[in-house]
Design a protein around this nucleic acid. Structure first.
Lengths: 111, 111
DNA sequence: GATACATGCAACCATTGGGTTGCATATTAC
DNA sequence: GTAATATGCAACCCAATGGTTGCATGTATC
């Protein structure tokens, strides 16, 4: 396994940016739990408008985190498994990198 | 261990937002590798201004990811271990949640 | 004390972002 | 066909963001 270079880690910025909003994070959580959901379903119980939800969904889609499937007059949204898995791996990589830094900091304090 | 509720996961949004910028991600990576660095050090080799770097550092600081220590005429920046560890755990939690969703999606396909 | 270095502060600018409202269009359901 | 539902499109608004430049201030250094 190749040590992650800075440049590759930087490619995760868009994913982080997409997740860096409470509303979008809520949408992802809902899709995690609820499978494929329509815009209307994702809107009910929210403080924001349907249009706002739509916008957030397109942002998530641009980051490759979700995908839409047309079904009749509905537009269902679901998680994008491959990209989500990729993002998950990025998180793991960063977590590992942080772990190293934390180790280093800790050993420095104890020195 | 208590199952993560949506509300608790949403608290990680600011951290994601802070990391959702290539420049800031680069700064975090630099601090991961380089320990405590001055603003000037963090600026050299960058396309942006020293002021821009300063702004990004305050954003990271607001998210609790970095901390500054004054040393003479320099202002050194380093990772905030506790908060970083907390963020790391959040990432792990989300990753676990995603794993569940991925499992569910996969088993659905194979059904 | 004068000079160089590291940073702070403030104003300013253009773009993006999150959100809304209003109206048009497709797709069921009756 | 008509009514109801689900969504699309576009314009608009305001606040936040990422960035700059110019100048002031603190701190070493000689």
């Amino acid at each position: 396994m190749r040590k992650p270079r800075t440049s590759s880690i930087q490619k995760t910025a868009p994913v982080f940016a997409a997740l860096g909003d409470p509303t979008r994070l809520r949408l992802v959580a809902a899709l995690c739990a609820g499978g494929a959901l329509s815009i209307a379903q994702l809107t009910t119980g929210t403080a924001v408008t349907r249009q706002a939800v739509t916008k957030h969904l397109t942002v998530l889609a641009d980051a490759g985190l979700v995908r839409d499937i047309r079904q009749g007059r509905e537009r269902l949204w679901e998680l994008e498994p491959s990209r989500l898995d990729e993002a998950r791996r990025s998180l793991d990589a960063i977590a590992a990198q942080w772990d190293q830094a934390l180790q280093r900091l800790k050993s420095f304090v104890e020195k």
